[in-house]
């Protein structure tokens, strides 16, 4: 990692913690630090005194691009788009029953594979 000294100023660093290898990094807060290496060390004790984790990222706040909070329309989803969700197909279960079968879910497949063999 490339570490640059801050130019006489402390900068806010946003902190992202990865709690285990199967999880994505998650934003938990920020620290004020003179450089990224210090920010990493500070982040550990400011955010991980109790929790276990496998990795931390710090990102200088001014390197983050964000949507504005005062434009909620950016996230507008006004109509029910259940055609792209599982619950939009809830009647499958009833329809399978007519064929004397149970509905299949992805958890069933995952369980099959965990059973081994």
């Amino acid at each position: 990692m490339q570490l640059k000294e801050a130019e006489g100023l402390y900068h806010p660093y946003e902190v992202f913690v990865q709690y285990d290898h199967l999880a994505h990094h998650q934003h938990v807060g920020s620290v004020l630090a003179a450089s990224p290496d210090i920010a990493l060390q500070l982040a550990r004790e400011n955010f991980l005194r109790r929790d276990k984790a496998v990795n931390i990222w710090v990102v200088r706040k001014d390197h983050i691009h964000a949507t504005p909070y005062d434009v909620p329309e950016f996230f507008a989803n006004e109509f029910d788009k259940d055609y792209r969700r599982v619950d939009g197909y809830a009647d499958n279960a009833r329809r399978w029953k007519a064929f004397k079968q149970k509905a299949l879910h992805i958890e069933d497949i995952v369980n099959d594979l965990e059973k081994g063999g």
Binding site: V71, E73, F74, A76, N77, E78, F79
Partner: peptide, 12 residues
């Protein structure tokens, strides 16, 4: 009103 809110992203 609802549609225009969704159209915001399209416009952008």
């Amino acid at each position: 009103v609802k549609i225009r809110r969704e159209e915001f992203y399209h416009n952008l």
